[in-house]
Amino acid sequence: MSHSVRDKVIFFTGAFGLIGQEVATYFMEQGARVVWADLRPQNEVIRVLHERFDEASFLVLPLDITSPESCQQAVEQATGYFGRIDVLVNCAAIDAKYDADAPMNQSRFENYPLEALRQSVEVNVIGTIVITQEVCKQMLRQGHGNIINVASTYSLVAPNQSLYDFGQGTIHYKPVDYVASKSFIPNFTRYLATFYASENIRCNAIAPHGVLHKHGEAFLENFARLSPMGRMCEREELRGPFEFLASDASSYMTGSVLTVDGGWTAW
């Protein structure tokens, strides 16, 4: 069974995010054809794609996964362009990050705004279901498919809130909306895996944690102290796990959660 993704058509939601850009670009370097679907496609990234790759090997689509109409249109455009969808990667999500590009969250659980919770559920739960429904219709028509859901270590364990204490007198918190909505992913993965097992559609999840990106020194020190491997994940280290799940090498895997966290959930 080959580890290759060459000639596979891979539909990537959240393709312009941190993980999305890294993995979608790597897939194309390995000869895959990729649908770059995102709520906000980035012109600079698109320009680089046109410079580096044959235009026949990728398609950029605006996609709002919370909109059934947007999802239906995107799947129709993707299949019209490539003829099929071999792999769906559900990477689009709302996440409260702790790098230089994101504001810190100071809301304790008892004060967390319900509107923020509803928004995360709308995207991370309902939106993931809506786009998966549309892609599954196409996979059933073509007789095969492979779904990769992007979970999180916070799908598996609670956040260690001391990670977000930077010794400045104010503790920041990983909010409940992300934990609640991402905890849905592992069981959703098992649901799809067992529902479609007899129809040649597989579904697995990958649970990354702590991808390095413009983090402050205090955060990096906390992370190193709490992680068995003593460091955050480099983006390149996600390539292999995603490639494995997208390839035929994982053909007897379905309903599994592949944890890529430097041992974070091991203690």
Rank of each mutant, 00 (worst) to 15 (best):
C233T: 15
C136M: 12
S152Y: 03
M1S: 13
R108H: 08
L212I: 03
V9T: 05
I206E: 02
S120R: 08
P186D: 00
Y112G: 11
S256A: 15
W264H: 14
L212F: 06
I131V: 15
D38C: 08
I46M: 11
D86I: 08
R84E: 13
Y164F: 15
A197R: 07
L220C: 12
S2T: 15
R231M: 11
N149M: 10
D7E: 11
S251A: 14
S120P: 11
A74W: 08
Y98H: 08
D38E: 02
D177V: 05
G230Q: 06
Y191H: 08
L117W: 13
F27D: 09
G17H: 02
V87S: 12
A93G: 07
I85V: 13
K97T: 06
L114R: 09
G169L: 08
A100C: 01
G127M: 10
E55S: 07
V211H: 05
Q72C: 10
S183K: 09
A193G: 08
N105M: 02
W36Q: 06
Y173W: 14
D261G: 13
R190T: 09
V34P: 11
R118W: 03
G216I: 07
G255Q: 12
T132S: 15
Q21E: 07
N200Y: 02
F109H: 12
I148V: 15
S155M: 06
S2E: 11
V257S: 14
F195G: 01
A15S: 15
L18E: 14
D101N: 02
N146P: 14
N43D: 11
V150P: 10
R239Y: 15
S162A: 06
V150R: 03
S155W: 04
N204Q: 00
G17N: 08
L59E: 02
E221I: 04
A193L: 07
Y252I: 04
Q138H: 04
A207H: 11
A266Q: 12
T259K: 13
D165N: 15
P103I: 00
A207I: 09
T265G: 05
Y191L: 06
Q72R: 13
I129Y: 07
G83A: 11
V60K: 00
A15Y: 03
G14F: 02
L39F: 06
R52N: 13
G17I: 04
N149T: 06
Y112F: 15
V157E: 03
G169P: 15
D54A: 13
E110N: 13
L156T: 11
T79E: 03
I171G: 07
E76I: 03
F219D: 03
C71R: 04
